[in-house]
Design a binder for these strands. Structure first.
Length: 832
DNA sequence: GTGTTGCATGTGTTG
DNA sequence: AACACATGCAACACT
């Protein structure tokens, strides 16, 4: 059973290397304890003999430990983590991807991979070369496939998640994606069965490889391109890609702008195969060097001959590579695996053909470097100039068999802006693409509300920690280069939520945790179809979505839940529009207006969010509530329709009265200040705790500063008292000084004297005014009395100098004014 | 003076 | 910590 939404506190245990712990900050609004650790998932084991099979990402403390199956592309892993974080950050939904992660009823986490550990061990053994010196790739692949599939299952959902946010322009791409996803999900479903199947399954073919997209966006059958996979088997291009189970780590962006000049409507079929497991260092290549070659490229390379093309590796050109110096640094593993072995630094001459058939002669050599070698291809300048390549472009190396001729291809890097403009969030072809795209994704993570909330909530030292994980703001030149063709994941957290639906027909069981009802599902969520909500000028609300078949827009009831794929035939609400032949319900102008409003709405929402985030930095714990407030800010528009995207998760539509939807944004609006409902009480309780903590921190800081100042200014008047008494004394001095400064500068001379006459009760009362004022301002009057009670209960033993007046020389109002202003301006650490 | 070559070094990545 | 690799740079060759 999938434990789909089972938030629970764990005892901090970790399952060895198999734990992923996530701080659920944003889960505050779900009633979960802030800063408690919730283990969400785990996975894995080293499963392949080579390379980076085991990836562990660490995220400061608390540690975010993720071990991942497959010789993992870091970017894919990051995407996975991203997804988990998004989900974990959502109020009610903690999802585990199918079978990859499992929360145990007993309160721990389970590593699915570890459960099959013995299988892995066997697999590793299987990778040992056989008597022919050939790795038993079938076995290895068999296991890697099962393992990959585990990731693939999750990744497929990530893909869908990303893809479904796509806009209408890339519908054709999406169409293909869906096909791919179909395939992926099918293979995922078959995973368990396949685990122990003989490799003969590889001989089958999938329809995907035979699909091409016509210029009209239709999907057409094309001749499959054959190539030899890493194990010497004939395989169709995309079959390999999909069967390999890897997330195809290169972005189609680069392909879309390939030197092959694809037609606009064409979707190249990228194949990303692990390089041939031949030569030295097989299977050791980093994913970034895995060749991503389209059908067209393969066909172009093979030409009319009957040659089979074996993609070897590729490399993104660095500035040095593309510079005049004419040296192309070859990845060591690639050079050693696919080029002839060289024992002398001088190396040898290599004849390499380009895609046009022209033959170039390069010097393949190496330099000794730190007890290692650095392989270079010299004399590449003419070739690179001929191809008009520059830094950021990609060169690919393939081999034509049986003649064994090396062939050099290339891909031009994409214009980032253009890529973002045309395919803002979709990743065509079902591929999670290359690092560049992922660096782009992660670079923009803060744009995602879930992350942002998480990040903001962790503020303080998060940036650098996250840099390590997400490459946010990485200074890496490599990443910068890669980032040039980065895709931007224009998906906000609530947009992600918009896409999440409970599985159709599945009813949740209700679990109450801390007085909050949680819907718990036994099935993981599905990714629903994106739709746009609009409000008619007449006040009526409606939902619009696009048919996945004819791409016409259909009007639906606001409360309609849509499956990931929705067609006109599924339109049970309007029989007259339940066929693709029925005319579009939106004129182009209306559609444009609708889309524009949707965009504007999101833009404004984002701006508002950032503004609010900044304002709330001093109250990170309230971020989530603040976010909710922003999300609740609908945008009126002058058009006939206004976009009214629901601010809650997808199950919640306007009018929904569930616990999420009734939650007052930022404690205001829907509920009165005196409201004592569960939600309001929780909000207030948390607010109170937060303010108390804040106040305590500030008091400590101020006391410390006061002490420092005191010692610096007048060492002889160092307070002689010690312990708590000393601290309170300093605090009294501090506050007194503040009041005197605020009220009457002329009293400066006497502030110290005055301070000794002040009772601690009064001081604390004055200090409490800040919070009181804040609470009042925020309509939390019911908390004021609580606050006062707390202040009293937390007050130190009174140190009253009998006979001394307890009043202040200043009016409390002055202090209040000052302090309130201080509050509004946030904490000022330099303000003693 | 300019270009080339080979090595050294700094930085990022991986295990 | 070890490794990979992008790039800087000094030494050298050539014009």
């Amino acid at each position: 059973m999938y434990s789909a939404a089972r938030p629970r506190r764990l005892s901090g245990e970790k399952a060895g290397l198999c734990g992923l712990e996530i701080l659920l900050i944003s889960a505050i609004s779900a009633g979960l304890h802030m800063n408690n650790r919730y283990s969400v998932m785990c996975s894995t084991q080293r499963i392949l003999g080579g390379g980076s099979a085991l990836h562990v990402a660490r995220w400061g403390d608390p540690k975010l430990l993720v071990c991942c199956l497959v010789p993992v592309d870091t970017m894919v892993l990051n995407a996975l983590i991203s997804m988990l974080l998004v989900l974990a950050a959502s109020p009610l939904w903690m999802y585990c991807f199918k079978e990859l992660f499992e929360l145990l009823d007993s309160g721990g986490i389970n590593c699915v991979s570890c459960a099959t550990k013995s299988g892995f061990n066997r697999m590793i053994e299987d990778e040992k070369p056989n008597e022919f010196g050939i790795v038993k790739g079938e076995a290895g692949q068999l296991h890697s496939t099962s393992a990959d599939n585990q990731l693939s299952g999750a990744s497929t959902e990530i893909l869908q998640f990303m893809q479904l946010s796509n806009n209408a322009e890339s519908r054709g791409l999406r169409r293909l994606l869906q096909l791919h996803n179909d395939d992926s999900s099918r293979s995922f479903g078959q995973m368990k069965q396949e685990k122990n199947l003989p490799p003969a399954r590889e001989s089958g073919s999938t329809s995907l490889s035979n699909i091409d997209q016509g210029s009209d966006g239709s999907v057409q059958a094309v001749k499959p391109t054959t190539f030899v996979d890493e194990r010497g088997k004939m395989s169709s291009v995309l079959q390999q890609a999909s069967k390999s189970g890897h997330l195809l780590p290169k972005p189609p962006t680069s392909v879309l702008a390939t030197g092959l000049e694809l037609n606009a409507g064409m979707v190249p079929q990228i194949r990303v195969a692990r390089p041939p497991a031949e030569g030295r260092g097989r299977n050791q290549l980093l994913p970034r060097y895995w060749p991503r070659i389209t059908n067209q490229e393969l066909q172009q390379i093979s030409g009319d001959s009957n040659s089979t093309v074996v993609p070897l590796f590729e490399k993104v050109l660095s500035a040095s590579d593309a510079g005049r110096i004419g040296r192309l640094v070859l990845p060591k593993a690639c050079a050693e695996a696919f080029f002839p072995p060289i024992s002398q630094p001088e190396g040898l001459s290599l004849r390499i053909q380009d895609v046009k058939g022209k033959e170039w002669v390069f010097q393949f050599r190496f330099w000794p470097n730190n007890n290692s070698r650095m392989y270079v291809l010299e004399g590449v300048t003419p070739c690179i100039q001929s191809m008009q390549l520059q830094a950021g472009d990609t060169v690919t190396f393939s081999r034509k068999d049986p003649e064994g001729k090396l062939v050099m291809g290339f891909r031009k890097a994409t214009n980032t802006a253009a890529a973002q403009e045309t395919i803002p969030s979709a990743i065509p072809n079902g591929t999670l693409s290359n690092e560049s795209s992922f660096s782009g994704v992660f670079k923009n993570l803060p744009m995602i509300r879930g992350y942002s909330g998480l990040l903001q909530s962790l503020k303080g030292s998060t940036d650098t920690r996250l840099n390590g994980l997400w490459n946010i703001g990485s200074k890496s030149k490599r990443l910068l280069t890669d980032g040039q063709d980065a895709l931007e994941l224009k998906l906000t957290w609530e947009e992600a939520q918009d896409l999440l639906h409970p599985p159709p027909g599945i009813k949740p069981s209700i679990v109450t945790i801390e007085d909050h009802d949680f819907e718990e599902y036994d099935e993981p969520p599905v990714f629903g179809k994106r739709s746009i909500f609009a409000v008619r000028s007449t006040g009526g609300q409606e939902q619009w979505t696009q048919c996945d078949s004819c791409y016409k827009w259909r009007r639906l009831p606001v409360d309609a839940l849509l499956p990931p794929k929705w067609k006109c035939a599924d339109n049970k609400w309007d029989q007259s529009r339940s066929s693709c032949s029925a005319p579009d319900e939106l004129t182009p102008r209306e559609l444009e207006n609708l889309l524009r409003l949707d965009r504007d709405f999101k833009k404004r929402r984002m701006v508002a969010f950032h503004r609010q985030t900044q304002e709330n930095q001093s109250s990170p714990g309230l971020n989530t509530l603040a976010n909710a407030a922003i999300l609740g800010d609908n945008v009126a528009d002058s058009g006939t329709m206004t976009v009214a995207t629901t601010t809650k998760h997808p199950r919640h539509r306007p009018g929904c009265s569930c616990i999420v939807c009734i939650q007052p944004p930022s404690g205001k609006g829907k509920h009165k200040p005196t409201c004592t409902c569960t939600v309001c009480m929780t909000v207030k309780r948390r607010f109170k705790t937060l303010m108390m903590r804040k106040k305590k921190r500030q008091s400590e800081r101020e006391a410390e500063i006061a002490l420092r100042n005191q010692q610096a200014c007048d060492p002889e008047k160092k307070l002689k008292s010690t312990g708590a008494l000393n601290m309170y004394h300093h605090y009294a001095i501090l506050l007194r000084k503040k009041q005197d400064l605020n009220c009457d500068p002329g009293h400066d001379d006497n502030w110290q004297l005055g301070s000794t006459r002040m009772s601690m009760t009064n001081l604390l009362r004055v200090a409490g005014l800040r919070l009181e004022a804040y609470l009042k301002e925020n309509g939390l009057t019911s908390l004021v009395s609580d606050q006062q009670a707390i202040s009293t209960s937390h007050a130190p033993p009174q140190i009253v100098n009998a006979g001394e007046p307890q009043g202040d020389t200043c009016s409390p109002s002055a202090t209040k004014e000052h302090d309130t202003g201080d509050e509004e301006n946030g904490e000022n650490e330099n303000d003693p």
